[in-house]
Design a binder for these strands. Sequence first.
RNA 1: GGCGGUGUGGCGGAAUUGGUAGACGCGAACGACUCAAAAUCGUUUUCCAUCCAGAGUGCGGGUUCGAGUCCCGCCACCGCUACCA
Length: 860
Amino acid sequence: MTHYSPATIEPRWQSAWEQAEIFRAARSSKKPKYYVLEMFPYPSGRIHIGHVRNYTMGDVITRYKIATGHSVLHPMGFDAFGLPAENAARDSGKHPKEWTYKNIEDMISQLKPLGFGLDWSRMFATCDVEYYGHQQSLFIDMLEAALVYRKKAAVNWDPVEMTVLANEQVIDGKGWRSGVQVERRELNQWFFKISDMSEELLNQLEHLDNWPTNVKKMQENWIGMSSGIEISFPLVNAVAGTKQIEVYTTRPDTLLGASFIALSPDHLISRELEATNSQLAKFSALCRAESTDEETLEKAEKRGFDTGLRVKHPIDEHWELPVYVANFILMDYGTGAIFGCPAHDRRDLDFAKKYKLPVISTFVPLSDDGLFIRPEQGGDAYVPPESQKVRYIKKLAGENEQSGRDAIAAAISYSESFKIGKGVTKYRLRDWGLSRQRYWGCPIPIIYCPTCGVVPEKKENLPIQLPDDVSFDTLGNPLEQHPTWKHTTCPICGDEAVRETDTMDTFVDSSWYYARFTAPHAKTPTDPEEIAYWMNVDQYIGGIEHAILHLLYSRFFARAMHITGHLPESCSEPFNALFTQGMVTHSIYQTTNVEGYPVYHFPEDIDLHTQTVKSTGEKVQIFPSAKMSKSKKNVVDPVNIISKYGADTIRWFVLSDSPPERDVEWTSAGVEAAHRHLARVWTLSQKISQLDPEHSGDAVKDHDKELLQAMHKTIFDVTQGFESFGFNAAISKLYAFENTLSKSKASQTVKRQAMTTLAQLMSPVTPHIAEEIWAMQGEKGLIIQAPWPQADDVYLISDIITLPIQINGKRRTEIDVAKNASTHEIEQIALSTQTVKSALGDALPKTVIVVPGRIVNVVI
RNA sequence: GGCGGUGUGGCGGAAUUGGUAGACGCGAACGACUCAAAAUCGUUUUCCAUCCAGAGUGCGGGUUCGAGUCCCGCCACCGCUACCA
């Protein structure tokens, strides 16, 4: 007997798979294809447990699909551009390229011992010149197709770093690194026209049957469709060359409750008035300076400035309304102007109270329960759900009693037929600004020529490579400051010209990598034949944090690549099925130092029995499990776990305790349990392989049958688990079957069969030990190449079945009946049981319900 | 505020989708082996109750022969989103 030693067996099988090129994806005319993809990692330098869980899920599917006769594509790459590399350059002096490629190398060496079935021959990083060169040509095609454009847009400018910051990098209005107040600057920026596809991106969501509903909902909210009308309020006196103010509303049914107009400080009219009205200018400047973070907005006072302008109500020209500039009106939503209806909007009511404006109800509750106070009489703004029926007292159109929804529809058609306003559908989704003033990204292939203007680089001049000789000693974009890089000649006239020094948002890189994996070395961005065979991604797996941006951008890009001829229309939705896996969490161990500050400790430094720090004996406080993070030190390094327990243990554990979509808590007890189990399986396999064949005989027939029944039931359950992301459930069945097998008194032949089947069922999760058992039991070849076991119905249905007997719906006893017993027979047997007899006494049952194969319910 | 999700033993969770609630794992207790410990193996472990009998899937109602599962109304927690007109 030898001990279970993962360190010995795991490398052996990994090289066996490599030599046999098991995971090298190849097109096959005989097999159905299957494309499994996990969201590729950022090369931070270390893999973490979250990666392990993510890739283990993908690997289970990969191996299961191979065993069920599929030709599988399971690639891996790196999302390698991005800010951390530049920060590392600034902090440690390492060049971003050197830093990134070193990290990639390190991460590959950490991934390989986990035994993932990946086609490493397709590996690429998005910072590979080859990859981003193709991305540049995609950009040029999209420019020609008018899917990209340039416009002036406000950005967050950090005056110390001399760079543009993403919104997430602005904290409390200050730059995250510099800590100084961020300025709003207007810069020329490149944009993808994603907003043109709002409707399409929204409507197609409902066809994504194998996407989680919450992700679809998040995207739906993000795209944010609303329908309403645009309606004009004529100005009493024309101003700034306009005779009217356009207003957008989703509640045209409250038009008769209007009491004021409010404009954004950035509205054309506000801007015009500001030029001659210094008080307004002061007010607007104050509004613009206001912090835009959510918490302050929540409490911020609603303030307005009466412009003195008056408009006429569109329904009644004698009804005049004041025009305010107000701090809570956004320029980039709707028209930048609203009409205020205080009776039916809490915010408008606050505003009306403050500036003593009229409050006019247009509808009231159907039944007045005496508790309702109209807003004009000091009550709250009345805002019932749109589906609720209310009574209209100032009605624009429709019935007197109708739901808000019906009233809106009626108001829209009324407005349209009397030409007061027109029905419009609006989306919240904005165009995707892709310009980043950074070095470590894909250069935008554009040239600015004094004569010819903005021109794309010629495709034959691609790729435009990033220069290696850059300095991070000075602030700002190193590309901008490079002595020669940006100087070039115009592709049209040949005169001196300069390159765009902005690079692309890294979300661009990850918006098409799934397509590139089908032909990673093609001379064009995609290869039609490979695309036709491999696309779409059959199963995409990743974190919920990408529910909106990455997935939405990818959906946009796939459509853009179709329009520009790089993908067929059938790839417009590139991910057939999406699965979002939960995080790996861990308890937090904390002590407090002499100054009273918290000090965190790594799990391996803690003695859990005594709840103390091993080195000092200090008592620790244990906080509930939270996402692993370096700052809280509640992390475990997969590399350490592998060297202690082996890859199979870590793979088994990350799938075992929780459903894959939920968070799983990492506990050392759990990992040890997983390891103990694998060691038990190992020992059992050894015992079985050494059993004496003479043990078989008639005496064991029943035991044989029992074991076979359990085996086929397990095949059925585990298969179903792997088919439906029920990994934790599948693993629990594997635990149970190991238990059954170890206690079984069946013959050696059947035990051996059960053992190899158990190994096969385990093989997607714990492939190394499975191969070892396969070999130990004398099977030929690799287990990964053996066809998946099939559950045989003969063993799933037994001749005698046990039926529970309920009395009035409560389980009381059970009976054994032949599987083909008639309903009547079952009823008779049930009624003859002692339990039922004594419950009945002399009475007859009211009714007896027999569900064949399921249950019997006696109602008395 | 809007939208979505979740709620089952001491803990993570299972339940063939309306049919024996608590599988499997952790933890705990007891036992075997051991001089002892570790490791390993075995037994017990929803609650209440000595047994009989009850109760029980966040709370309150409903539909049904039968509800963790379906319907209505609450409560709590989590996520996304939000001065969105």
